[in-house]
Nucleic acid binder design. Structure first.
Lengths: 200, 200
DNA sequence: GTCTATATCGCGATAGAC
DNA sequence: GTCTATCGCGATATAGAC
């Protein structure tokens, strides 16, 4: 619990940036929350931007990773793979720090081209690639009906993102997200029924 | 093409707000684009916030409306209703002004509580209500399998929103959205196959 | 490493001449 | 209705004492 001044700065700045955005967060406010003067802050960081960039790097640090081998193994299990994916997506959505970083990303998305590109690559493309690989394997194993794996991946991911987006909005105003917490599981059930091989 | 000064202010301010956000758009920049001094601007608006609020009102002005009667009539046509809905959603997504207003909404969403509430009500709830009514009618008419209409509405809308979100991001950097333009139609096809009554 | 003091800037907004 | 001039403020950032 005993943080260095530098760590305290990053902690308070992350909170402020993720609530007010880059521009509206002043060096003054950060210093005030830390309990030091603005000038003292410049002993730890070159300028405001350096503080922001240090924090922004965390946005794309995903604690959860699935290896290529795991995809191939897990995808053969069909719906169980989707459930596992959603469980991890839910953890990210409800984890306090991940929530903060996701909000920061959304707030700064149109102000920062680098963030936009990393969003497309790491939040969209990476997930689409992973999911379409899994759906392709499910088709090979005759678990789901034949279709474009990328289209299916798109359909599956979109709903999760939308729910996360809504949850992030509601939580910012301390509103209840109870109904949305189960929405992701309902999505897996509905989706699996849509794509699975029919036996009729 | 001959705009009054007040109209010019609104036009230039809308562009700036939708690119930089409220805070980063200065009265100075607006006046400069219009071709007048800042002080002259105050002859038309009380202050910066009044300009913003005038523009923000447009965000929720939807040119397209479907009446209750039309829903009941159109929903009976099943997939044709979904195609019509998506056609209108696509028009909004690719219309220059609507795109600008949507971006403004996304940029200011976490800075403005009123916008968040109107987003939930008018972009989410309103569409979910309309769609779930339509799906309910489709179930009554035995066009689609029995299920929770709200769940299905959620699944249908989420994908459209996600595609619109991505298109808005890509267009901001003048990147191609060609593949996404057809993605919405593919969504209808995929979705209809998922929910329609099977005859097997 | 923190402080006080200060430089410099851009911001929103107003007063008053034309 | 537009201009010049100006005010007061809060912002980022630096210099130099302790």
């Amino acid at each position: 619990m005993s943080l260095t001044t530098k760590e305290k700065i990053l902690k308070e700045a992350a909170t402020l940036f993720s609530e007010l955005g880059y521009k509206a967060t002043s060096v003054r406010k950060i210093a005030s929350k830390v309990g030091i003067r603005e000038s003292a802050l410049y002993n730890h960081f070159k300028n405001k931007e350096e503080i922001f960039l240090t924090i922004a790097d965390e946005i794309f640090v995903t604690p959860i990773q699935i290896s290529q081998e795991e995809i191939e193994k897990e995808a053969k299990r069909g719906k169980a793979f989707l459930n596992r994916f959603v469980t991890q997506y839910k953890l990210l959505t409800f984890d306090k720090h991940s929530e903060k970083m996701f909000r920061l990303l959304l707030i700064e998305l149109f102000a920062n081209k680098a963030l936009r590109e990393r969003f497309i690559n790491e939040f969209h493309q990476k997930n689409i690639k992973l999911l379409s690989q899994a759906f392709f394997i499910m088709m090979q194993n005759d678990l789901i009906r034949s279709n474009d794996p990328i289209l299916i991946a798109y359909e599956f991911l979109s709903v999760l993102f939308y729910i996360r987006f809504e949850i992030t909005l509601l939580r910012f105003d301390n509103k209840s997200t109870a109904s949305l917490a189960t929405q992701m599981e309902k999505h897996v059930d509905f989706f699996w029924e849509s794509i699975k091989k029919q036996n009729c």
